[in-house]
Computed example of a mutant assay.
Amino acid sequence: MVGSVIQGPIVLNNLDTYVYQSWHGTLITIAVILFVVSFNTLLAVRLPLIEGLLLILHIGGLFAIIIPLWVMAPRGTVHNTLFKFTTTGGWSNLGLASLIGMVNPIGVLIGYDCSVHMSEEVQDASIVLPKALIWSVVPNGLMALVMGATFIFCIGDVDEVLASPTYEPFIQVFFNATQSYAGATIMTLIIMIMLTSACISEVATASRQLWSFARDGGVPFSGWLSHVSPGWNIPIRAVFVSVLISTLLSLINIGSYVALNAINSLGVVSLLFSYTVTISCLVWRRLYGAPLPPRPWSLGKYGLPINVISICFVTPLLFFAFWPVSANPDATGLNWSPVMFVSILVVALVYYVVWARHVYTGPVVLVKRDD
Rank of each mutant, 00 (worst) to 15 (best):
A31R: 01
V45K: 14
I65T: 13
F83C: 03
F85P: 04
T86E: 14
L62N: 10
I66T: 12
P68G: 09
P68A: 09
G52I: 13
N80W: 05
L54F: 15
V36I: 08
G89N: 00
A64H: 06
N80R: 05
I65S: 09
N40Y: 06
W23M: 02
T87I: 02
P48M: 07
L42G: 01
L42N: 02
G25P: 05
T29N: 14
P48S: 09
W70A: 03
K84H: 15
T87K: 01
N40I: 05
L27D: 08
A73V: 01
A44E: 02
I33K: 01
F63H: 10
G61T: 01
A44Y: 01
G52V: 13
G60V: 06
T81A: 09
P48T: 05
L47S: 00
V78K: 04
F83W: 13
L62F: 14
R46W: 13
I56C: 13
S38D: 03
I66M: 08
W23L: 01
E51P: 03
V37G: 00
T87G: 09
L54Y: 15
G25D: 10
A44P: 00
G61A: 00
F63E: 09
L53V: 14
R46T: 04
G25V: 04
N80T: 07
A64V: 10
K84M: 12
E51A: 13
G60I: 07
G61H: 00
T86G: 09
N80M: 05
I30S: 06
F85H: 12
W23H: 07
F35T: 11
E51C: 02
V37T: 06
K84W: 14
M72S: 11
I28E: 10
A64E: 05
L49E: 15
M72H: 11
G61F: 00
A31M: 09
V71R: 01
F83A: 06
L43R: 08
R75Q: 14
T77V: 03
R46H: 15
I66K: 08
L43A: 09
H24E: 03
A73I: 00
